[in-house]
Simulated assay, not measured.
Amino acid sequence: MSLRFELDPAIGPQLRDGLLALWADVSNAGGAVGFVPPVTAEEIRPELVKHFAAMTEGRTRLLVGYDEEGAVAATAFLTYNTHRLMRHWIWAYTVMVHPKHQGKGYGRDLMAAVEEAARGFDGIELIRLTCRGGTGVDRFYASCGYKDGGRVPGAIRVEPGDDRDDITMYLPLY
């Protein structure tokens, strides 16, 4: 089975709660999506509210992957640049696949859906994302066609004594 993707779904309590649960589950499984375990959905809620505000303002779009039961299983937030010299590319943020679905090819499906969505955005020629060094996820993104755009050594402090590189990767769409 594969995921069913939806760009710009209607936000309601079920989707909100599904996003919070996904984000907490991914974080608590060691996923590098802005939090360090243990974390609760309530601790994540303010960050999700910021994403929703950016969506309301038209700066961010949401791509959701639903599993065969209709549960939120994967996400990516796609954010436009507001700087006049950088409007030709978008950021992919909070890219997640639920831990119970990892190893099924859903990550590749999500990245293909991100690319397909971005190709439909007027004037977008490139996707950029960042990832946390030391997780191996940069190799995954490279296998999806993303190129290493540079890194800032030790820019992410997971905890005292555990600093990781902030890796920027990009995918040209032309």
Rank of each mutant, 00 (worst) to 15 (best):
F140I: 09
G133S: 08
R16D: 12
A74G: 03
D122K: 14
Q102H: 01
A53G: 06
G34Y: 01
E43D: 08
V137M: 06
T135D: 03
E47D: 12
V39K: 06
F35H: 02
R61L: 10
R128H: 14
I124V: 15
D25W: 01
G145Q: 11
H83G: 12
D67Q: 05
T79R: 15
L173N: 07
C144Y: 01
F140Y: 15
C131A: 05
P153S: 14
C144S: 03
K104S: 13
L78N: 05
L3V: 04
Q14S: 14
Y174H: 14
L63D: 00
P38V: 13
D148H: 14
K104G: 06
G65I: 09
S27K: 07
G123E: 09
R87L: 11
L22Q: 01
A92S: 05
M55P: 09
D17K: 12
D17M: 08
R139G: 06
L22E: 00
G30N: 08
R132V: 05
A54Y: 09
V26M: 10
L129N: 02
P9H: 07
A142N: 03
L85C: 11
Y93C: 08
Q102M: 12
T75V: 02
E43S: 09
G65R: 01
A41G: 14
V72T: 15
E125A: 08
W89D: 05
F140N: 02
G149R: 08
G30S: 05
A71G: 06
D138V: 10
H83S: 13
I167A: 03
Q102C: 08
V95E: 00
M96Y: 00
L126Y: 08
K147R: 15
I127C: 02
L19A: 07
R108N: 08
E57S: 10
T168I: 12
F77P: 01
V97Q: 00
A29M: 08
V72L: 07
M169P: 04
Y106R: 07
V33Y: 02
L15E: 11
G18H: 06
G123L: 08
G103N: 09
S143L: 07
T40W: 09
A112I: 10
S143F: 06
T79V: 11
M86S: 13
L171K: 13
E125W: 02
D138A: 15
Y170V: 10
I44C: 07
L78D: 02
E159N: 14
G103L: 02
L78C: 03
